[in-house]
Design a protein around this nucleic acid. Structure first.
Lengths: 151, 151
DNA sequence: TTGCATAAGTAAGCCCGCTTAATTATTTAG
DNA sequence: CTAAATAATTAAGCGGGCTTACTTATGCAA
């Protein structure tokens, strides 16, 4: 019980710390690209899974009208493509252009640099220990996610 | 070398996974409060360290004019106080009201619930293992942060 | 005292992101 | 074929958040 509390509180502490750093990279990369946080967020969403306009809006928590406008601005600036779905000509398939992918690569790379520095501060033994623990965390987080989808 | 790469990539993987979940809680809490992400972000910043308007703006990466306007909206809605600094009557000290603190508590609590569930999915041995690894991560991240401040 | 620097706020103007309501094109059910 | 449903867009309108330029009040130093 006390162990359980200690773990979730330490997780919390780590997340607070991590958030400050990761958010910084995220925001800086967003500024560099000249896009808003919402726009970069949409690009991330699109990179994970292609889909229609309404579907993307739903996952971003906005109406399809809002999604259409958001995506239109990204299209105007050459970050995404809108192609007619051959199986339903009402729908559009949204995909990233190379320019869109580069925005994400930049964001990912700046974070990866930070993580490399972090890893460099650890001894090989510590690295191994942290690696094993992260695998547990990743595994259990996925388990939690798939459980929630069931409901 | 290969271990190093494996660790930073696994860290990356964990962060991707975590971001999806944590961002969801963050956005949902933001919606519940009726505030924008920028407003909740400012409240978080204020809770960490009190300071003047310009100082807050600087940390948020915006001009002091923008900060003044952002904070004014929060003041109008009763989330913060603006008190004259007794040592420099030009400056205002920004602090959270109880209402402002509640917004943050709500955000923190919804995240804590998720972390509790995550911890519950682990055996006591795994919990101990993860706890030890997190302590290393927290320690090294702080080390990295303080090193960057030196430059 | 004069004058420059600093902290905050104000005004005008822009773009973003969101909503609701209406429109267009297409699919699907009867 | 006709009518309802669906996917996307468009239009109008609101507020947020940002900028620059300016104003006001205060601090500080020659």
């Amino acid at each position: 019980m006390t162990q359980h509390t200690a773990l979730s509180e330490t997780l919390h502490q780590w997340i607070d710390l991590f958030m400050r750093n990761s958010a910084k990279h995220w925001i800086q990369s967003s500024r560099r690209s000249g896009l808003s946080l919402a726009q970069v967020g949409a690009l991330f969403r699109i990179s994970k899974k292609c889909g229609g306009v309404s579907e993307i809006g739903e996952e971003l928590g906005v109406t399809s009208a809002a999604a259409s406008q958001l995506l239109d601005r990204l299209f105007q600036q050459g970050y995404i493509l809108r192609q007619e779905d051959p199986r339903d000509r009402r729908a559009k398939q949204i995909t990233l252009t190379e320019k869109g992918q580069q925005v994400l690569s930049d964001s990912v790379n700046s974070r990866q640099e930070w993580l490399d520095e972090l890893a460099n501060l650890m001894t090989p033994e510590e690295q191994e220990q942290v690696l094993a623990a992260l695998k547990i965390l990743i595994d259990r987080t996925r388990q939690l996610e798939s459980g929630q989808q069931m409901q």
